[in-house]
């Protein structure tokens, strides 16, 4: 807890600065922090917010689930089979560094203006880092653990589920944690590009009607949700990899 002090202080200083600057500027486009916070509390009570939250959470969850379900097997195959690695590595490295935001508008004609595009955006943003980290984990498996399991007569499936996956778990969890950040970006960017669903629609409408307090309140809520997600994932990561970290 002591370590958190500088963080709290820094946030506090930033909040005070915002408040003072906004009051001094007295501009409708730049609401004070106190007004934004107050609006945030109103916002979460609105039916339109609840609908948007539900739609966003669903698209995010589906996209992340797909990313994990595709990312772990693909990463595992790349880590354990050289030919697969040679074929896929270049693509994974292209996509992980590519500015995917530019591709999202191109998804719309294919997947339609709706949830499918948003889910696809989440997937496109999130899956690569899971693949890369899972691959890393699979490459780094202790050889003698594999020999141990083989000498005890493990089947291929047992080898994968009881040695490889647990061995690679620290890297897999790191990949998932990093992909959550990207997935949150993906869901918001997807919705803003599509512009008629979820938080994207809300952002759009607040911006067009100059409801800046609501706009910033929503930004703040999205930031907060992201941080809560990270905290939860971090917790799960620590639980799952408590002992696997030691090699």
């Amino acid at each position: 807890m002591v370590k958190q002090k500088p963080v709290v202080l820094s946030l506090l200083a930033w909040a005070v600065l915002w408040e003072l600057a906004a009051r001094y500027a007295a501009n409708d486009m730049f609401p004070a922090l106190s007004a934004v916070v107050q609006t945030a509390f109103e916002l979460v009570g609105l039916q339109s917010f609840k609908n948007a939250l539900f739609i966003t959470a669903r698209a995010f969850a589906i996209g992340m689930l797909l990313s994990v379900l595709v990312g772990i097997p693909v990463g595992a195959l790349m880590g354990r089979f050289k030919p697969v690695d040679r074929i896929l590595n270049v693509w994974v490295n292209i996509f992980i560094s590519a500015p995917l935001t530019a591709v999202v508008p191109a998804l719309m004609p294919i997947l339609g203006i709706g949830e499918a595009t948003v889910v696809a955006t989440v997937f496109l943003f999130a899956v690569w880092v899971i693949i890369i980290d899972t691959r890393e984990g699979m490459v780094g498996i202790n050889r003698s653990l594999l020999e141990m399991a083989r000498s005890l007569g493990a089947s291929r499936w047992q080898m994968f589920t009881r040695i490889m996956l647990p061995s690679a778990m620290p890297e897999v969890m790191t990949g998932i944690r990093l992909s959550v950040v990207r997935g949150i970006k993906g869901v918001i960017i997807g919705q803003i590009v599509v512009a008629v669903v979820g938080f994207g629609a809300l952002f759009e409408s607040y911006l067009h009607s100059f409801e800046m307090a609501r706009f910033w309140a929503l930004v703040m809520i999205v930031f907060l949700l992201g941080m809560v997600m990270m905290g939860l994932i971090g917790l799960a990561e620590r639980r799952l990899t408590r002992h696997a970290r030691v090699r």
Partner: peptide, 14 residues
């Protein structure tokens, strides 16, 4: 046959 490994080969998560 059962094998005993130089580096023990114990699963650290178990």
């Amino acid at each position: 046959r059962a094998f005993v490994f130089q580096d023990f080969a114990l699963m650290p998560w178990a």
